[in-house]
Design a protein around this nucleic acid. Structure first.
Length: 290
DNA sequence: TACACGCCCCGGTAGC
DNA sequence: TGCTACCGGGGCGTG
């Protein structure tokens, strides 16, 4: 499942592949169309499918960037600028190819939900096995307020101080640290995998209340998260289940995970434990993490 | 008003 | 082999 590093790698690949192409035609899968007709918000958010297609056709791709776990495509049409904010959910993936057969893995090919035919003849393809991802066409970021509430990019200057300030707010003091670092308004882009790894490396129990962690330890934890996110980008991301890059390749970060989904602590050999925090499974070592 | 909780978008997969 | 329960990112509605 894609977190910040995986999204960053997708963006880097898309930037290499795409250069101001124009979207000529758009196709949306029958299952998405059917879900939308039932009133569900399946992948194509807010807009109905015909409107989404009509708006997207004729758009020129100006730039592709990442903001937290969102892919931002800046688009223009008739002198107006738009933003396509794409979230991969748990199983979303983008591909670029000459035909749908270029999506070589069957489980992704079976779940292609949006196809953007480009003016150079290639296809920009969005596949999403579980359909938890989103394609959100906006006039600007402010049209979807949660985007404005996201914490600064973790690599940006000031993000660490922002983190310290946020977890020092009354609403966070008694809450588990893991809940805080997985909240996108506290840190951008840190999901369950990297939160689990960072807490293990810093020997912090995931349920420890924010109030009961010194500022020094909190800063060390933040820096650990940044280091792990960077390491994962260098390793091509974590391919826990369904992450693939634009060329359909997996990453290798999962090979160096020490705690996420592990049964035994690599440090002390104790059996790990799993608890639920905010309905998310948290794996930790009861001996090493206090 | 603010927060906790459950729901919802789903298919793959583990377990029986 | 086939069925069922479970999992989860993240917003949102309800109590």
């Amino acid at each position: 499942m894609p977190e910040l590093p995986e999204v960053e790698l997708v963006v880097r690949d898309l930037v290499k592949e795409l250069n101001h192409e124009r979207i000529e035609r758009v196709e949306i899968s029958d299952v998405v169309i059917a879900s939308k007709l039932e009133g569900k918000e399946a992948i194509v958010k807010t807009l109905d499918v015909p409107t989404f297609i009509r708006e997207m056709e004729g758009m020129q791709i100006e730039s592709i960037t990442r903001r937290s776990k969102y892919i931002y495509m800046t688009l223009t049409k008739n002198g107006e600028t738009y933003l396509l904010a794409s979230h991969l959910g748990m199983t979303g993936a983008w591909f670029v190819g000459n035909s749908l057969d270029d999506v070589t893995e069957e489980k992704f090919r079976r779940h292609i939900h949006a196809v953007f035919a480009l003016d150079d003849g290639r296809l920009l393809i969005y596949s999403d096995i579980r359909r938890f991802g989103e394609l959100r066409l906006l006039k600007e970021e402010a049209d979807y307020p949660p985007l404005l509430q996201m914490a600064p990019e973790p690599f940006d200057e000031g993000a660490e101080d922002y983190f310290i300030a946020r977890v020092s707010e009354p609403k966070w003091l008694e809450k588990p640290i893991k809940q805080a670092i997985m909240d996108g308004t506290v840190i951008s882009g840190c999901g369950n995998i990297y939160a689990t790894e960072a807490l293990f490396k810093q020997k912090i129990h995931p349920k420890r209340a924010c109030r009961r962690i010194s500022e020094q330890r909190k800063r060390a934890l933040f820096q650990e998260i940044v280091a792990i996110l960077n390491e994962s980008i260098e390793r091509g991301g974590s391919s826990i289940s369904d992450y693939r890059n634009v060329n359909g390749e997996s990453g290798t970060m999962q090979n160096v995970h020490q705690m996420y989904n592990k049964k035994v602590c690599p440090e002390c050999g104790s059996a790990t434990k799993q608890i639920q925090i905010q309905n998310r499974t948290s794996t930790y070592c009861p001996q090493c993490q206090k």
